[in-house]
Amino acid sequence: MFHLSQGFISRRAALAGLLAIGLSVSAVAAQSPQASGLGQSWPNARDVSASPNWHVYVFERDGVRYVQVNDLNGTVRGAFATAQGQYLVLPVGTDAQLIGTPQRPLTMIKPAPSETVYRDASVQVLLTPQANGGVLLRVFDTATCTDPYNCGNVMHLLGH
């Protein structure tokens, strides 16, 4: 029969525990790559835009997702944060005042062609260029909105 000392078993258990922790930290790091630079023209994050005309960067931290939209020149147009169905417009970008969310809808726009610049399982972002050079960013919760034009995010005022 084999006889193992208790010290050998303790060291072996500790080493196995450290290895398991190291692997779980590596797995988490692989799932959420380190991205930085929220608010910057060229952040250290992957461009996930659904459009070749815009750059979209997503950052995540502590369960909050931050989405930033830049134009092709790197100008930050706007950004918002979202967690558990709540949205918050961030005070960054040249068009930060032109961002509509389910909690903070835009109150007046004229109908214009829009383009989806980002979509994932819970968020869709439509962008509408304006004649004055500004850009409207409309954010929709894809879990509750199947038709962004009829979700109540925007009130079209046509002289009524």
Rank of each mutant, 00 (worst) to 15 (best):
D141M: 05
G93Q: 03
W42P: 02
N150M: 10
N70T: 03
L127M: 10
P111S: 09
D147S: 10
R77Q: 11
V64C: 02
F2E: 13
F80H: 05
P105Q: 03
L126R: 13
M155N: 13
R104T: 13
T82Q: 10
W42E: 08
A29P: 04
L90R: 00
Q34W: 08
T107F: 07
L158N: 15
I109N: 10
T75D: 12
R138S: 10
L157G: 11
S114C: 08
N150Y: 13
P91T: 00
I109F: 01
G152V: 05
H156L: 15
M108E: 12
G7C: 01
T116R: 10
D47E: 04
N73L: 08
L88M: 09
P105A: 03
S5I: 00
Q97R: 13
Q34I: 15
G159W: 09
R12N: 11
S32F: 13
A50E: 09
S49V: 00
V48I: 10
A96G: 01
Y149G: 13
R77K: 09
K110P: 00
H156A: 10
W54V: 06
N70F: 00
Q124I: 07
N53P: 04
Q84N: 15
R11M: 07
G7P: 07
C145P: 04
G133T: 01
I109L: 15
D95L: 03
T142W: 07
D95I: 02
R104W: 05
L19R: 03
D141S: 07
D95G: 01
A45E: 07
I9G: 02
L106D: 03
Y66H: 12
S32Q: 14
A35P: 02
R138C: 01
V135A: 12
M1P: 14
R12H: 09
Q34T: 13
S36T: 13
S10C: 09
Q84F: 12
V67G: 01
L106N: 08
A30D: 08
E60C: 01
V69S: 04
S10H: 12
A27T: 10
M1S: 15
P105M: 05
A143T: 15
D47C: 03
S49R: 04
R46C: 05
D120S: 02
P91W: 00
V135L: 12
Q86I: 06
Y118D: 02
L4I: 14
A50V: 04
L15F: 11
P91E: 08
